[in-house]
């Protein structure tokens, strides 16, 4: 079987999700039997030409990014949005809370005129995305699952139920029982409640379930005395770029 050519690309991100590839462990060797890595800045320097599958990390934040991602989309048969930044805009979306000129000045000071910037966008706000691997960082077992689907030309459906489902499977003590606010009830599962298993809260890095019960959620917030803007802000940490589609 001919190996499928896979290229990793990064836009605005910390490249931490690419680092997760190294955490896949033994399975990585099996993956490398199936694919030929033609581009992967984290671990290799050579730059190949053609590729079948583009794995895109990071969000789109400049005009140059827009052109570049469109070019990648044209070349790639399959495009995988990889990590929160690519899937929902991620933490880079926080930029959209401010005036763009102010942001530029704050970051680049007197050189701000040298740079251009556009509001942060998830990859699918610019080009068509075939597969999503949500998460900050991605959950390696889910990435392997998505990659298998992509290589076989099969759809992958991101679970459309709350992180609570998996968290309860794992018999974690509910964060709300501990008096801590957690975004599990509105966030899409698929990470095996990775954070709450390890004592952390859910930050909503996988985006919102498709049909949250907004009024019900508000009641719960009232019960725990949590102001609505507080939770919206918290959720926007990862999802600001897609805000208009959610709240």
């Amino acid at each position: 079987m001919k190996k499928v050519k896979v290229a990793f690309f990064d836009f605005s991100c910390c490249e931490g999700c690419q680092l997760q590839v190294a955490n896949i462990g033994d399975l990585l060797l099996d993956i490398l039997e199936k694919i030929e890595l033609v581009e992967f800045r984290e671990v290799m320097s050579e730059r190949g030409g053609d590729y079948d599958v583009a794995v895109v990390e990071g969000s789109i934040t400049t005009e140059h990014d827009v052109k570049r991602i469109k070019g990648i989309r044209e070349k790639a048969k399959v495009l995988i949005a990889y990590g929160s930044c690519a899937c929902t805009g991620g933490v880079n979306g926080m930029k959209n809370n401010f005036d763009l000129e102010d942001v530029k000045k704050y970051v680049y000071r007197d050189k701000s005129d040298w740079f251009n910037t556009v509001p942060t966008m998830a990859v699918d706000q610019v080009v068509k995305v075939d597969y999503y691997v949500n998460g900050c960082p991605v959950y390696p077992p889910e990435f392997v699952r998505v990659l298998k689907c992509a290589l076989r030309g099969m759809p992958y459906k991101v679970p459309d139920y709350a992180v609570c489902v998996e968290c309860k499977f794992n018999e974690n003590e509910c964060m709300y029982d501990k008096g801590v606010t957690c975004l599990g009830p509105i966030t899409r599962a698929g990470c095996n409640s990775w954070c709450t298993n390890n004592g952390n809260i859910c930050y909503g890095c996988r985006g919102m379930v498709s049909n949250p019960n907004k009024n019900g959620q508000k009641e719960v917030l009232k019960k725990y005395n949590i102001p609505l803007d507080w939770i919206v802000n918290k959720f926007n940490m990862y999802n600001k770029a897609k805000e208009s589609q959610q709240v």
Binding site: A162, P185, N213
Partner: peptide, 9 residues
């Protein structure tokens, strides 16, 4: 139905 969050707990 108005209150349920569908968390499956």
């Amino acid at each position: 139905g108005e209150r349920c969050l569908s968390c499956g707990n």
